[in-house]
């Protein structure tokens, strides 16, 4: 990311400034344009700095991990004797690949079901008038008010009594009804102009078709945000998998990482490597979804 090309700042600068719309060119805009690059770099540094430390550490041998933390120097970030042993150990001796695959499948399944059933009810709450819908909405919202720690034991008992203990289903079923997501999608459905729905109904569309063909495409950025957040949430889940699974074949990434804290020794080099691998799929996912944030895509439907 950092190289010796002295032209790089200027190149980046012109690219960023060039993207600004021409019509905004008052004195305020010009001073902002000058400030913009330092702000962008400052912001980027603030957010990425601890991560660079994490990435560097995942290529270090064990004895090097904390040796150069203090005083801070380039050696704090750059491994002196870089090695792939940590990754090798994770994949070949700790079956980390299985954990990654499990987490991936569970997260995809969770996201798909959550968005499907969440967007259906959100659509009903936002766009269909029926008696008591405000009450239903508040009741749904109320589920996010109770701390999970309070109902955890009870949900655990439910899972055991449904015969789902130590199964894949136990890992995602309780999480696919998500009031946060329902709330988010409802807010976005509400913002869609009424004419769109009315026109579709006049055309003879059933409500389900209105939902599926007209409404869903129009809240795509919200769906993408929801998908990303839900994916991250599922990926980070750790307390719940710990409670409902024992089978090593059902291990998820965060559980596999937490196994690296043993009572004798904290295997920091593997924790950093595991945490690094654990972020890669999420970053790739986001890069893939990022294009849905480009302006214009969304409004083209009814402009």
């Amino acid at each position: 990311m950092i190289n010796n090309d002295s032209n790089l700042p200027t190149l980046m600068y012109s690219r960023i400034v060039g993207r600004r719309s021409d019509r905004l060119t008052g004195p305020r805009q010009r001073s902002w344009a000058v400030l913009r690059l330092p702000v962008v770099i400052g912001v980027a540094f603030f957010f990425v700095f601890p991560y660079l430390w994490l990435v560097g550490s995942s290529f270090r041998p064990r004895e090097e991990i904390f040796r150069y933390v203090n005083p801070i120097s380039w050696r704090t970030f750059v491994p002196l004797a870089p090695t792939l042993d940590n990754f090798r150990h994770l994949f070949f001796e700790r079956n980390f690949g299985r954990a990654l695959a499990n987490s991936l499948v569970i997260a995809l399944v969770t996201v798909a079901i959550t968005l499907f059933i969440g967007s259906m009810i959100a659509f009903a709450l936002a766009r269909i008038k029926f008696p008591g819908r405000e009450v239903v909405f508040v009741l749904i919202l109320a589920t996010i008010l109770i701390p999970f720690e309070t109902i955890m034991v009870s949900v655990f008992l439910t899972i055991q009594r449904l015969g789902l203990f130590d199964t894949y289903a136990a890992l995602f079923l309780p999480w696919v009804t998500d009031a946060f997501i329902i709330f988010l999608l409802r807010q976005h459905f509400r913002d869609i102009p009424d004419e769109l729905q009315d026109a579709a109904i006049v055309d003879g569309c059933s409500l389900f078709r209105v939902y599926w063909n007209v409404m869903l495409p129009n809240i795509r950025p919200a769906l993408v945000s929801a998908a990303f957040v839900k994916f991250v949430f599922s990926w980070d889940a750790f307390l719940w998998p710990l409670i409902v699974t024992r089978d090593p074949d059902l291990t998820v990434v965060q559980l596999a990482i937490s196994r690296l804290f043993t009572d004798q020794n904290v295997l920091w080099e593997l924790i950093f490597a595991g945490a690094f691998i654990g972020t890669v799929p999420l970053i790739i996912l986001f890069l893939f979804l990022q294009r849905y944030y480009v302006e214009g895509v969304v409004t083209s439907g009814f402009n």
């Binding site: 399944v109 798909a112 079901i113 968005l115 015969g163 789902l164 199964t167 289903a169 079923l173 795509r220």
Partner: peptide, 23 residues
């Protein structure tokens, strides 16, 4: 995007079904 969505959904139900049968 929607096809992907439906595919994953179908897949997940299949998965849940196999699991309960297994266990």
């Amino acid at each position: 995007l929607r096809y992907l969505f439906v595919f994953v959904l179908a897949f997940s139900f299949a998965l849940a079904a196999c699991q309960t049968a297994d266990e």
